[in-house]
């Protein structure tokens, strides 16, 4: 088995998930200039809801794809509601407040969601029911499962759809206008509140899908899973240039690749001194490196010192 190809495949799968989550961060940041610290928890809620629905329907005899579809719809609906509520309750009242105030409410929301999930689903890990028909395929000496293929394809499809939405629809134009200059957009007849709500809702729907993907890929979900995932995805968004849609996609994929290649080869690089338990470090080292040399991210606009 070719390790290099295998790590590339794993990286792509992981990266697709990061990218979906990163989109949520970057859209909110692009429009409001705010780090939605609670976004990772929305992913977790999505995973938990999807898992619960799948468990409920697993014995019902429904076809697998219907079960998954229902789970996805349920998870998306819940996450969209949660996303909408987060914005209304924790961010909207603070739009004119000092800049750090919404960061603290975001942290508060994150804590609330995490512990709410702990109350509802308990502290234990939940295993993903083995309902998916997993088949393995050989590519260039590496293995890819049908689930992984599905993850990459669905993620690509969703991202293409989102970019089309932003570039070619009225709603997308309004979103771009709002991120460019909210007061002017408002003068031009854009309902900013509505646009911001929609941004949260769309981001949350993507998060729900990502949540299902993560739990399917790793066959596991728990109340604490959103935290690190959110952190990584945010890193990906910054890596690509936060506020930039294409940047989030690129950053996500890159981060996935870096992490999985790094974990696969760090032992060789350091003569065995550092092992794959340092996997989580790459994300941050890469991030620091990129930001030091290109402070606006890979494809972010160059921001002058005065901005």
């Amino acid at each position: 088995m070719d390790i290099f190809i295998q790590q590339i495949i794993n990286g792509l799968v992981l990266g697709s998930i990061y990218a979906l989550v990163a989109l949520g961060y970057t859209m909110v940041y692009g429009i409001m200039g705010l780090i939605n610290f609670a976004h990772g928890e929305v992913v977790m809620i999505g995973a938990m809801v999807a898992l619960t629905v799948i468990k409920l329907l697993a014995g019902s005899g429904l076809p697998v794809y219907i079960v998954i579809l229902v789970a996805l719809i349920a998870a998306s609906a819940v996450c969209m509601a949660v996303g909408y509520a987060i914005e209304r309750i924790a961010y909207r009242p603070l739009r004119r407040a000092p800049k750090l105030a919404p960061l603290i409410t975001a942290i508060g929301v994150s804590i609330v969601l995490q512990n709410l999930a702990m109350l509802v689903w308990g502290r234990n890990y939940h295993a993903f029911p083995p309902i998916l028909p997993v088949s393995e395929h050989e590519i260039l000496g590496a293995t890819i499962t049908s689930v992984q293929v599905a993850i990459v394809l669905i993620a690509a499809l969703l991202m293409a759809a989102l970019i089309a939405l932003i570039d070619h629809t009225r709603l997308g134009r309004a979103m771009r206008a709002t991120s460019e200059n909210p007061p002017i957009a408002q003068l031009m007849g854009v309902n900013i509140n509505q646009i911001i709500s929609l941004t949260f809702v769309i981001g949350s729907a993507l998060a729900a899908v990502a949540g299902l993907m993560v739990s399917a890929n790793y066959s596991i979900a728990h109340y604490y899973m959103g935290f690190m995932l959110g952190l990584k995805a945010f890193t990906a968004a910054v890596l690509g240039g936060i506020g930039n849609i294409a940047g989030a996609v690129l950053g996500g994929i890159l981060l996935g690749l870096i992490e999985s290649l790094g974990a696969g080869y760090i032992g060789d690089f350091t003569g065995g001194f550092l092992g794959s338990n340092y996997q989580d470090i790459f994300a941050f080292f890469v991030l620091i490196g990129v930001l030091v040399f290109r402070p606006s991210g890979l494809i972010g606009e160059k921001v002058s010192e005065r901005a």
Binding site: P93, L94, I104, T105, I107, G108, I111, V112, N115
Partner: peptide, 13 residues
């Protein structure tokens, strides 16, 4: 922790 998170939100609001 749930109450603590809520307290953070309410105080900041």
């Amino acid at each position: 922790m749930l109450l603590f998170g809520l307290a953070l939100i309410v105080v900041m609001l």
